[in-house]
């Protein structure tokens, strides 16, 4: 690796501002290194916005937050063309998606048309407004949130759309000790602004380094096996909350796509780089397996009727594949 500043420095800088939420911070950094996007599911008030804003500040990048509502239009996100009477011509006004770090808050509150516009921009990394195409900034990371507690008036994201997110993180409440530290840091003292520790050029160099991280053949086979078992999990047994033993295959309609295989490789490489290695380990794959798979597996109604937690099924499938 030839980069002087390391991704670990960025993580350390963010940890000085964000208390706990290591999963969210790591997901943000992995998305940055892997050129992907993150879907967060969790209650409000868990420092998601602060994490995104801090990341942008630590990189000297732009940060934009878009609150998704039922009356939002695609043009509110990507931009539009307005007629300039003084110049007597149409001028393009770029939307809030033109930023390095974008927080799409409560993405499931907007109708499918708006969701589709955002997800297409995430995929193509460019936006067409009228006759002109505009490339999105590089790096470009979208962190979309969903609130699991309040589902009234929401538009669930289809699996095909969710597949475009590199990973999905379930954000939980902080521990008691973390909450005490939050009190000390934000209620009892003046918060310190995040210090800039890297540049956007550094991020591009890190991405290139992550792309060069070695993934051994044994690890590739392990990754393929992990994805394959989501499609044929007859041998995996899980227990419901009531103590009934079920076959995982009976709870799954369809397994993860090959995009999940690629995501696992990208994320494992990113995690290796974050750890200062230029080769990936089974631990890297194991650590990112659940976030990379959980939003790509189609569970059926029995998951709810048998009162089984989806993460329990995913963990059982991961555990069923021995690491190399």
């Amino acid at each position: 690796m030839t980069v002087d500043r390391q991704p670990g420095d960025l993580r350390a800088a963010l940890a000085k501002t964000i208390v706990g939420q290591e999963g969210v911070l790591e997901a943000l950094l992995l998305a940055l290194l892997s050129n992907g996007h993150v879907l967060l599911e969790g209650p409000p008030g868990l420092a998601k916005t602060l994490a995104c804003r801090s990341l942008a500040a630590a990189l000297e990048g732009d940060f934009k937050r878009i609150q998704f509502t039922p009356d939002l239009l695609p043009s509110d996100i990507v931009g539009t063309r307005i007629f300039d009477q003084r110049e007597s011509r149409f001028a393009t006004v770029l939307g809030p998606i033109f930023a390095n770090v974008v927080l799409a808050d409560e993405i499931n509150r907007a109708p499918a048309k708006v969701q589709s516009a955002l997800l297409e921009a995430m995929q193509e990394r460019q936006v067409t407004i009228g006759p002109e195409s505009h490339a999105l900034p590089d790096p470009f990371v979208v962190m979309a949130t969903m609130n699991p507690l309040d589902s009234e008036g929401t538009y669930a994201l289809p699996i095909a759309q969710m597949d475009r997110f590199l990973m999905k993180i379930n954000v939980g409440y902080p521990t008691r000790e973390e909450e005490l530290r939050i009190l000390d840091r934000f209620a009892m003292a003046d918060t310190q602004p995040v210090r800039c520790v890297a540049t956007l050029d550094d991020v591009r160099a890190w991405r290139a380094a992550a792309h060069a991280v070695h993934v051994d053949e044994k690890l590739k086979r392990y990754i393929v096996d992990l994805v394959a078992i989501t499609r044929a999990a007859q041998s995996v047994a899980v227990k419901s909350a009531g103590g009934t033993t079920l076959k995982a295959a009976d709870l799954i309609d369809y397994g993860a796509s090959p995009r999940a295989t690629l995501a696992l490789v990208f994320l494992a490489r990113g995690r290796a780089l974050l750890d200062g290695r230029d080769f990936a380990l089974p631990d890297d794959v194991r650590a990112v397996a659940a976030p990379a798979l959980r939003h790509r597996i189609g569970f059926n109604y029995r998951l709810a009727t048998e009162n089984v937690n989806a993460d329990v099924v995913i963990d059982a499938m991961i555990a069923a594949i021995p690491a190399p």
């Binding site: 070695h214 051994d216 044994k218 230029d278 080769f279 380990l281």
Partner: peptide, 11 residues
């Protein structure tokens, strides 16, 4: 040992 099992050939 983990490194020797998974690192790249040049290393």
């Amino acid at each position: 040992l983990e490194r020797s099992a998974f690192t790249y050939d040049e290393d």
